[in-house]
Design a protein around this nucleic acid. Structure first.
Lengths: 148, 148
DNA sequence: TATTGTTATACTCTATAACTATA
DNA sequence: TATAGTTATAGAGTATAACAATA
């Protein structure tokens, strides 16, 4: 009888694929003094155009306290600015600085190389499938676990 | 100009797919009083047949101190036993107890349902591709980062 | 002297709770 | 009274370091 190894389990595969990506990303992103995650926050700020901190947190699936910490660091390094919304001063509108924009340009180059290297073991034809499958899973889970 | 959202980044997709799986797994596995991860350890013990703690740790990609903690808990619950190897008493051979075997049988049922539900958003034809792609990535990274 | 396993400790990531301010 | 943001704290998961036993 053949026993299924833990190595073939979905949980193991997802965890270690994630860890492998993070490890490779840490190497590559070292050159620009920011993490892949931080660049993800910047990208979301750019895509959303002046989100509040809470909107940003909800979009990225993190707690607002975690977002506050991330933004503290990004702001201290001059990558984003926080501006109180005049019509509702409880909200901080987050926007990219010039440095933030510049960093995103460098991020794009690094990420292209990172993804290329990370996905190298997967046949070219299946790389898009991998991405779309993950996308489908993540979108399903995220939309079904939203609080009303 | 259209900006790429952070939500489409590989790191984000992998992380949240992993978190979604863990969240769903935590629900399902609650019924048997063990985690998916613990069942993965049991499965690896079964597949390897009497591994030492260190072998087990290396195979599963965790630190030996982490493995010691995992095994402490599994042993206390009567799921595995540790036996010093007579020819090298530094090594503990890990083996499944009857309860450990029984739990693995229940794990198989739970995992089938869990995977089915988790992979539901992915077309059936692409589910195997997702698994094989992750497998290729994880195996590549793991074998290339082994210490000699 | 090197290896296996154990224990104590520290670090990272993240969330919960309590607080301030604004509405 | 509810919401946005901040701060302090705690928890999970993991690794590093020091140690004991064995080789």
């Amino acid at each position: 009888m053949i026993y299924l190894m833990a190595l073939d389990r979905m949980g193991f595969l997802l965890k270690h694929a994630y860890l492998a990506y993070e490890s490779l990303a840490a190497e590559k992103y070292d050159a620009i003094g920011a993490t892949a995650r931080e660049c993800g926050v910047l990208a979301q700020v750019q895509a959303t155009e002046n989100p509040s901190q809470l909107e940003l947190a909800n979009e990225l699936g993190v707690d607002r306290t975690t977002m506050a910490q991330l933004l503290d660091s990004l702001e201290q390094r001059g990558l984003v600015s926080r501006t109180p919304l005049p019509t509702d001063r409880r909200k901080n509108l987050v926007s990219l600085t010039k440095s933030g924009h510049d960093l995103l340009a460098r991020d794009r180059v690094i990420r292209a190389e990172l993804d290329r290297e990370f996905l190298a073991p997967v046949h070219t034809a299946e790389q898009a499938t991998l991405r779309s499958s993950l996308h489908a899973i993540v979108n399903t889970q995220r939309t079904s676990s939203r609080t009303p």
